[in-house]
Simulated assay, not measured.
Amino acid sequence: MTSHPGAGDTVDWGAVEAGWGTPFPGDFKKFMVEYGAGTIDDYLSVLLAEPQGGFDGGPAYMGMAEESRNAEVAWRVEPSKPRLITWGLDSSADILCWQADGDDPDDWPVVVWSRGDGRWSEYPGGMAEFLCHVFRAEFDRCPLGDLSLWGAASPRFLHRDEQQRLRDSGIDPWTGEADPFAGMFGD
């Protein structure tokens, strides 16, 4: 998956990791540098790394902190379960997280809340490995609620700022054609 000019985000990892009280996985840090927060094939959104309290101490709508709280509502059936940190969401309302258990974040498995199945599934390896397995259709079954990325030969990533720039210019970011809904919902 190639990035595009202007992709990538600068993250204050000291603030993020202090806010969560833990280091973050190395592959996610590299992803933020190369790609940043954005969307893959208009289906899976990768969230921007943010402090646990959100930016400026307030919750961010659909941000990492807010979505981690949402994931833990479904996860915390038992108080002894390790906490979750959400790194992605998809258009099927699935939630993609790390099971933040253990001292080495590079060993944290990915867990996916499947809205369609109403259950959690765990996948060894980090975020980048998980995405590669999805793109190559290497799991026993697709872990996401839709087959949009399953076996995707050349998935496309768009940084959130590039998506917004295209929308603001009246272009659908995913088709490159004029957006028939441009301007309908205000600025």
Rank of each mutant, 00 (worst) to 15 (best):
G53E: 08
A100T: 05
V77P: 01
R115Q: 15
G57D: 08
E67I: 07
A65F: 00
M64G: 05
F55G: 01
W87G: 01
D94Y: 05
G125H: 01
Q99C: 14
R76K: 15
I95N: 03
V112W: 03
D56P: 03
Y123D: 00
M64H: 04
W98M: 11
T86D: 00
W120Y: 09
A93D: 11
S114P: 00
D104E: 13
A93R: 13
G53W: 01
T86I: 01
Y61N: 12
G58A: 12
P59K: 11
G54S: 07
E78I: 04
V111D: 07
E72H: 03
D106M: 05
S121D: 08
R115K: 10
A60S: 14
D94V: 00
E122C: 13
G126A: 05
D94W: 01
L89A: 02
A49R: 02
K81W: 12
F55L: 12
R83Q: 14
E72M: 15
C97A: 10
G54M: 10
E122S: 15
E72G: 01
Q99E: 15
D107V: 03
P79G: 07
G118E: 11
P59Y: 10
G116H: 07
W87D: 00
E122M: 09
P105A: 11
E72K: 10
V112Y: 06
S92E: 06
E66Q: 15
E72Y: 08
A49M: 06
V111T: 10
M64R: 01
D103K: 12
V77E: 15
S92P: 03
K81I: 02
D94Q: 05
D94R: 00
Y123Q: 02
L84C: 08
P82R: 13
S91Y: 11
G102I: 00
G53I: 00
D101P: 01
G118S: 11
A93C: 09
P79E: 04
G116C: 02
Q99D: 14
M64Q: 14
K81L: 15
V111S: 03
I95K: 02
L48E: 06
G63Y: 07
A93Y: 11
D90I: 02
A49V: 04
S91T: 09
W120F: 13
S80V: 07
Q52K: 15
V112I: 13
D104N: 15
G54P: 04
